[in-house]
């Protein structure tokens, strides 16, 4: 009986430890840019990015689990041409006034060995939520070399995904402006 109680107490005590095993990271906005590529009339591939992204990531390498919660400011879309940016912000595309935030949320981070390999999550764009899987092409963690004390831990990753904009109700100028969107997500995040 005493032995069973001790085991129960130890198990109960270990629960908070397990909960704390996941590392929490906050996205570093100046080094985080979701970029997108889209066919322009079949002649070329145009590229754009969002300049304002924020969010949190948690990773538990031991349990091989994690979560992602990212918010992208739709009005921060930038293609290097102001008039096109204005057009992209309008109701024709991102409708940035009506839907100011694009979100990506996941509680399903798949690991390959010690590193995350893919994220199965939900992208919400124009008020429509659809599953989108991000493939993690590169993942690195370590002490931030810019921190003189070398105490700040940072992780960086490159992820990519592909989806159809029409799935989210964005249909303007189809098929001239391509339906397939390639998303490349370069992200850096500081350990909390």
């Amino acid at each position: 009986m005493f032995k069973r109680n001790v085991i129960a107490v130890l198990l109960a005590a270990s629960l908070p430890l397990a909960a704390h095993a996941a590392d929490s990271y906050t996205i570093d906005p100046p080094h985080t840019f979701p970029r997108f590529m889209i066919s322009h009339l079949g002649f070329s591939t145009m590229e754009g990015r969002f300049d304002k992204t924020s969010g949190k990531i948690t990773l538990d390498r031991a349990a091989k689990t994690g979560s992602v919660d990212i918010a992208i400011e739709a009005a921060s879309v930038s293609t290097g041409f102001v008039k096109r940016d204005d057009h992209l912000k309008s109701t024709d595309f991102f409708s940035a006034v009506e839907f100011p935030t694009i979100t990506y949320k996941s509680n399903s981070v798949k690991f390959k060995g010690d590193a995350p390999a893919s994220i199965e999550g939900n992208l919400t764009l124009l008020g429509v939520t659809k599953p989108v899987t991000l493939t993690i092409d590169a993942f690195n963690c370590g002490a931030d070399p810019m921190d003189p004390m070398k105490k700040k831990q940072k992780c960086g990753a490159a992820a990519s995904a592909q989806f159809k904009r029409s799935d989210f109700g964005m249909k303007t100028f189809l098929p001239g402006i391509g339906d397939d969107i390639k998303l490349v997500f370069e992200v850096e995040a500081f350990k909390d």
Binding site: K83, D86, H87, K89, S90, T91, D92, T172, F173
Partner: peptide, 9 residues
């Protein structure tokens, strides 16, 4: 509306 950057409208 077209000049104001909205093709659909």
């Amino acid at each position: 509306a077209l000049f104001g950057a909205s093709a659909l409208l």
